[in-house]
Amino acid sequence: MKVTVLLSAGLHPVSGRPCPAAVELQAIRLAHTLGTPELTGLHAGPAADAVRDALGQGLPRLLWLETAVEDDPLAGLVAALATDRPDLILAGRQAQGADDSGLLPYALAKALGLPIIADAVAIEPAGEGAVHVVQALPRGARRRVTVRLPAVVTVHPAAPTALPFAFAAARRGTVERRAGQAALRSGAAIDERPYRKRPKLIAKAAAGASAADRLKAATESAAGGGRLLVDPAPDEAAREIIAHLRELGVLRR
């Protein structure tokens, strides 16, 4: 099976130095669960510093399409993938280094005419020409989707952690450098400034919610001030706990 992993020019969130995006490294690990695929990393961008380290984390070879900083990587990637025709294209949930909008895999799938499945945490072979993709849903639930290949699959951060970095493997891996395609990024002018963290708007006593919800939100403030039972009989304590948990909706039986 031919598998291509899309790699982006990640940045470390604290130091700001180039570093591979964690979720793409997890994608490499998922590719390894498909037996021994013919695995290639694909990156389009002006530099491959960040991506090169992925060679130490399970990627044997990297194809680097060299483009200018202002180029849109999509056209080059589509051209490369259209000639290479991998069975499975893996990408992170959200690439880094540019807009971080997570849109590229979708645009790519559209351009290549391939189906796309989002948020994989596991991929298993499912007979000839198909795979089971296990998707992460909130709160630990999963959806198992069988999809016909070729397909694009994006990987969720809940997937197994990446293979650890091996310096010697990074040294051994090969980087093939090709000229990319020049394609100007489209889109309206966007004002940019240094990121500033905004406080989350905690809508505890959501005024738009029903009166019962408001009451609930007000009575169960997280900052304590709840009910206190001192030395109840164990049975009584158990009853109280069960009633309380049921009220919170976490006890489903």
């Binding site: 130490g56 984390q57 952690t161 970095f165 091996a166 310096f167 010697a168 493997a169």
Partner: peptide
């Protein structure tokens, strides 16, 4: 183990 295999303990990676 670390440099050639990347086989470090889980939390060390």
């Amino acid at each position: 183990e670390t440099l050639e295999c990347g086989a470090v303990p889980e939390k060390a990676a």
